[in-house]
């Protein structure tokens, strides 16, 4: 959409400055506090053993090569892929399902209001609390095993976080629990923005609820869903606290993700350069995604 104010541009080139003025607080903040540190991190990634060493040597892409050929890094990538894709899809599905439930016009505003608050509860806790809460529940002698046992679904005291086969799934479930409300609320709002006329027309045409969902609801929600997926991808890929405080990347390497890998590189092995290189790789992936997102945004307007 061509903005009306653009017509002023012809009157004088000075006008170009206006949007930048409005953006200046944001840009100054980001330039000083974010771009400088990010630049430093990227710079570290081309040097040998920064921070520990007073006179680091330029090593080119050696750190990147080291990281990319590290088996551990590849395991972390694999686990992160699982963690992120399952989380993001589950967030979407659960968020959508709950939002559809809460959007019903079979219930009064008050009832829906109460359920909205209950459904948004996980959003209100800091990551370390969520981690200790779930660790308590996942304990072999914790409430989850107890409930499974009294309902005869299991007889063992399963070590959810301590087992190679369950740990990654268990940690992913925590992340699903912690972050779905963000989707739910956003989708709920999106649903309220869909015009009722569309549904009425569909009802007259005799469309089934399933068809209405796939042909009206989903397409109408598409822009908001894409924004949510992009943001969620970027946030989930660097989820650290929940994983570190529950499993620390173990058992063995079952829950090793990029964030725990980077942490160990930096603060346990004191290989800041390699940690920076890993961070550079994550930044690259997310930047590509962000460019796609921005392009998609442009197409929308």
């Amino acid at each position: 959409m061509k903005k009306i104010f653009n017509s002023f541009n012809k009157n004088g080139h000075k006008i170009e400055k206006t949007p930048y003025l409005y953006l200046s607080p944001t840009l100054i903040l980001m330039a000083v506090l974010l771009v400088i540190p990010i630049f430093m991190v990227l710079r570290y990634s081309f040097f040998d053993n920064v921070i520990i060493n007073n006179n680091p040597v330029f090593v080119g892409f050696q750190n990147y090569i080291n990281v990319l050929t590290d088996d551990r890094f590849l395991i972390a990538v694999k686990n992160t892929l699982f963690f992120v894709s399952v989380s993001v899809i589950a967030h979407l599905v659960i968020g959508l399902y709950f939002a559809m439930l809460l959007n019903t016009d079979y219930l009064g505003e008050k009832t829906k209001g109460i359920f909205r608050v209950i459904y948004a509860l996980p959003w209100m806790f800091t990551a370390s609390v969520i981690a200790i809460l779930w660790k308590m529940m996942y304990n072999p002698h914790g409430i989850i095993n107890y409930l499974l046992q009294i309902s005869n679904l299991s007889s063992a005291n399963i070590a959810w976080l301590g087992s190679r086969s369950y740990a990654l799934m268990a940690v992913t479930l925590i992340n699903i629990w912690a972050r779905y409300p963000f989707y739910m609320i956003s989708i709920l709002a999106g649903l309220q923005g869909i015009s009722g006329d569309l549904y009425e027309a569909a009802a007259i045409d005799g469309a089934t609820p399933v068809k209405r969902f796939f042909y009206i609801t989903l397409p109408q929600l598409k822009p908001i869903l894409i924004s949510l997926l992009t943001l969620d991808f970027v946030w989930t890929i660097q989820q650290f606290a929940l994983i570190w405080l529950t499993t620390g990347g173990g058992p063995i390497s079952a829950t090793e993700t990029l964030s725990t890998y980077i942490y160990k590189q930096a603060f346990s092995k004191y290989q800041y350069s390699q940690a920076s290189a890993s961070a550079g790789i994550v930044l690259l992936i997310c930047t590509i995604l962000a460019i796609f997102y921005a392009k998609q945004q442009k197409a929308r307007t």
């Binding site: 943001l231 650290f240 964030s259 940690a275 920076s276 890993s278 930044l283 962000a290």
Partner: peptide, 20 residues
């Protein structure tokens, strides 16, 4: 700028910690 605002969030905070 739009893309940058998103992508700058992508640097794991742990690596930013010391320079920051």
């Amino acid at each position: 700028l739009n893309a940058m605002i998103i992508s700058v969030q992508a640097v794991p905070p742990i690596t930013l910690l010391i320079p920051y």
